[in-house]
Design a protein around this nucleic acid. Sequence first.
DNA 1: CATGAATGAGTGTTCATTCAT
DNA 2: CATGAATGAACACTCATTCAT
Lengths: 210, 210, 210, 210
Amino acid sequence: MNTDNEITKLKKVTFIEQARRSQIIECAIDTIVEIGYTQASLGEIAKRANVSKGVISYHFSSKDELFEQIVYKYDELSKSTFLPQFDMQIPPKKMMQKYIKSHLHFIEQNRNLVYANIEIVSNTRTKEGKFKFAGKFDERILEPIEYILLLGMKDGSFRRFTKLSRRILAQTIRNTIDGFSLEIIRNPDVDVSEYIKELNLIFDLSTRVD
Amino acid sequence: MNTDNEITKLKKVTFIEQARRSQIIECAIDTIVEIGYTQASLGEIAKRANVSKGVISYHFSSKDELFEQIVYKYDELSKSTFLPQFDMQIPPKKMMQKYIKSHLHFIEQNRNLVYANIEIVSNTRTKEGKFKFAGKFDERILEPIEYILLLGMKDGSFRRFTKLSRRILAQTIRNTIDGFSLEIIRNPDVDVSEYIKELNLIFDLSTRVD
Amino acid sequence: MNTDNEITKLKKVTFIEQARRSQIIECAIDTIVEIGYTQASLGEIAKRANVSKGVISYHFSSKDELFEQIVYKYDELSKSTFLPQFDMQIPPKKMMQKYIKSHLHFIEQNRNLVYANIEIVSNTRTKEGKFKFAGKFDERILEPIEYILLLGMKDGSFRRFTKLSRRILAQTIRNTIDGFSLEIIRNPDVDVSEYIKELNLIFDLSTRVD
Amino acid sequence: MNTDNEITKLKKVTFIEQARRSQIIECAIDTIVEIGYTQASLGEIAKRANVSKGVISYHFSSKDELFEQIVYKYDELSKSTFLPQFDMQIPPKKMMQKYIKSHLHFIEQNRNLVYANIEIVSNTRTKEGKFKFAGKFDERILEPIEYILLLGMKDGSFRRFTKLSRRILAQTIRNTIDGFSLEIIRNPDVDVSEYIKELNLIFDLSTRVD
DNA sequence: CATGAATGAGTGTTCATTCAT
DNA sequence: CATGAATGAACACTCATTCAT
């Protein structure tokens, strides 16, 4: 079965290559967490991966691509985690609670990836100073929250909002979640369950009908 | 008269010197806002200040010192703005509203300084990877808010908190304020009054006694 | 006369800067002659200029620009040398002799520049493999010779040519001159006067009317 | 039979080995023509040969050896083409015409090899800057032409030459031939027969007796 | 005081070469 | 035999810092 062998070989090759890329990506993430975006040179990443600098260039076309892959990994993991949870059936209040809970759990379980993503996205700029990953800051990230708030307002489970007040509340919730990403790096022993409970209480109260 | 002249001279020198330092600090802040911490080299700062690179080295012992001065300026302005406002006489609810309002106004009026401070504080690390301005993240920043919450809880104007729940709420408020610092850079036309109104509503509701 | 001083200063500054650039260009030329285009790294050039590598980057935006300047210098010197000599008054036969003679003298007196120019022009290619200085090879370089041949043919001092035969003869003359540029580097003691005399004889004979 | 088999095997192995080497040499030649000596890395050669970089290192002890083989191939083909033609019986004038004609045909038919050889020979230097293939530039290449000129002078079919004038004319002819090697790469549609005819005319005229 | 000039360490990247499989 | 993987030296370039004028 020549064909089979070749396929096996090809798969294996690709698999090894992918494994190596993954390993380097992982080390790059750790490096960023340990010493920060600014100091995370290829040399430092290579050191942590116990390989020579050239290995990284061999597997990635550039440092930019390596960092893009980290952002990509974050995006994919993020999408695959949260999209399936976006269920219209659940009542808005529950939905909001689920949103907060699942994001905090996601951050807890992927804290280094989440932190590295923030570092890269907030620091990578073009030569002209524009944010390279500007899309990451854009409004779309607020849409799910705004939509939940809208649903809850319509079915009477939340108080009334203007379009602007909905947006500001959504931003507040996002800021809270992003802030948690930094907090868990600084203080790894944070009590996540308690944090979730408190945030749910805070935003339950701040959305309740009088 | 000699002495007098020398003093005058010294004063003048110091004054000019201070003016020069201030000017460079201002340009450094603008540079960081325009192109980000990573790309803010002495060359880029000098270009914006219309001076040679050497001038900066002449007035500041190092790039580190220049950036420290930005953080110092932020701290001083921050202290001189907020400390006088910390008035025990005002009822907690009002105090909290004032806290939010004054911070957002402060950010609005000093947006570049605030943003540069964040960039520096979150990116400057020691060779070993420790945050150089670690103190900026520390608990002390939460103390005023926690204290207000404690007061309000004791006099019955806020709901009951555990120590931990107080801290989490304080963090939420801080995250909201820090998030606004970034938002106003990305979106300079944000309606600050409306933002203040909404945040006050949100945190009024979330601290209210049933 | 403040103005005067400033002008003097500016001129001096520009003058020093130009002198430094010229000096580096000269060292780059020598380096190419000594070790060839391929091995002529910024480090080797800097070594010959007794400066650090960074100095070159300080005065030139890139290695490319430095090499472009060599080609530019060749072009300018070449133009300023030969253009004034292109005199319609002289009879074609004399003109041709003058062409050969002045080019060989030019090469003799600027042998390193001429050689470095050839190395750069023949080796510098784009990423896709196109010659960056393709224009240097183009037909225009043959125009003066072809024109002289045409004039001589018309006034009967040269034999008859077709357009193609004129071009081939022009190429032959150019190849001879370019070949001399390499020869004088390999064999610095070449007898230039004799060379000129012989080439003039060769091309006299090959253009002569029966 | 064992022995026979082994011999067969060895022969086959050697044959395959030789075929592989030839294939790689051919690709190296093409690479040099396409993107130039400077950019002709093992990676680019391997890409054109549809093999991995390692294969080249496997079949050649070094990049140097691979390039030497190109020069060697050129030399061998050159020798085997021109040596048999060097026939004392032919009259000098015919001999010279044959020299030019056969060289231009050789270049036409082996243009890539000829061009790659020039690139390698003119660019490969030792660490100290000496030309590695210095012998290629040396006087021996002029010997056949000089000899033909001497013969023709002696039998009265060419004009009189000094030793030096003979050498200069020989160089002129060589420069013309080398120049054609470059011309045919830049302009593949060059009319070779016409070129031969013209060169023969030019050098016929320049050697003729008054 | 201010400048342009220079330095040298550090960065990302390329590449010939080596090697285990 | 052939491969992909890895190495390490070399490269062009950037930049904070120093210094003579």
